[in-house]
């Protein structure tokens, strides 16, 4: 190939996109939105089907092919399902446990994280490294010994085993908050220290008010986690009236597993608070995910 030829092919290669780029741009956009739309459709379909099934009369639910919009939608599955088990009690229990635990997690984790971010104390860095290392430990290893201890203390069939550990902070949240506290300039608390403020004052009057976004992330994640928590209530709660929504739903499913509209309706009822919270505080959800992962 001569230099001349090389030059021509290269010019052609450069010109070619110029001519076609518009056409390709349009086709590309159509393909892009087509693929995205199809994917989104597939991702949403199970949830839409769930809603659709929950408002169908019994007979329509098992129709093949699927009838998406029933001619006469009914809330029968909701009222019947709700009556079968004390769902209002399950709801109340879950809300109570979740609220208490959100307060506990935010308070304890922020105190610990504050010390790691701001106070220079003996052995801090080694101690922080140990904290990070514990994140690798699967919960199953300590599941049985902790159960044995609670059984000895008479805590089985109470909420204590589901609450106390969460008031003792956890490595993941401490890590997340500590990273956030580190980004706050220490100038303000240096000034406060000169004015004679103690660590507790700096924590409560400077760091906490400035960390609302990060605290929101922690609170939202604690909410979703506690609402869905299954293994803990399954192991510790034995009386039906103490059940949380997750194990109440499981009990419902074992009793009513043959009734599709009812199980769908009750599952949806259990999902609604998380869904509402997601739409209200989407920013926090997304921020939390990004905060945790990007820096690895």
């Amino acid at each position: 190939m001569t230099t001349q030829e090389q030059l021509t092919t290269r010019t052609q290669a450069r010109d070619w996109p110029l001519v076609w780029s518009k056409v390709f741009g349009v086709v590309g956009k159509i393909v892009l939105y087509g693929v995205l739309g199809l994917g989104a459709f597939i991702f949403l379909l199970p949830l839409l089907w769930m809603i659709s099934t929950s408002i169908k009369p019994e007979a329509l639910a098992y129709n093949v092919p699927i009838i998406w919009i029933p001619a006469e939608p009914t809330f029968r599955a909701y009222t019947e399902g709700w009556r079968t088990l004390p769902f209002d009690l399950f709801y109340r229990n879950t809300i109570l446990m979740t609220v208490v635990n959100i307060v506990g997690i935010v308070l304890s984790s922020s105190l610990v994280a504050f010390a790691f971010a701001r106070i220079r104390f003996w052995g801090r860095d080694t101690y922080f490294f140990i904290l990070l290392a514990t994140m690798m430990l699967p919960a199953q290893v300590t599941l049985i010994p902790i159960y044995v201890i609670w059984a000895r203390l008479g805590g089985v069939n109470s909420y204590w085993p589901l609450i106390v550990p969460q008031w003792l902070s956890n490595a993941y949240n401490v890590f997340l908050l500590r990273q956030f506290f580190m980004t706050i300039s220490p100038e303000m608390d240096d000034a406060a220290r000169i004015d004679g403020a103690g660590w507790l004052r700096i924590y409560s009057q400077i760091i906490m008010p400035m960390s609302k976004p990060a605290l929101g992330v922690i609170a939202i994640q604690a909410f979703a986690w506690n609402w869905n928590e299954f293994m803990g209530p399954l192991i510790y709660l034995s009386e039906t009236r103490k059940y949380t929504i997750s194990i109440g739903l499981r009990l419902f499913q074992t009793q009513q597993s043959q009734k599709m509209p009812e199980t769908m309706a009750m599952s949806l009822v259990a999902l609604v608070p998380v869904l509402v919270m997601f739409f209200v505080a989407q920013r926090y959800f997304i921020q939390g995910i990004v905060l945790t992962g990007v820096k690895g």
Partner: peptide, 23 residues
Amino acid sequence: WRTVYYLPAVVSGVAVAILWSWV
């Protein structure tokens, strides 16, 4: 788009397991 694709990851636990046992 982000909301739609992220939504299934938000819901989890027993309710989703029941949903999928029917799906």
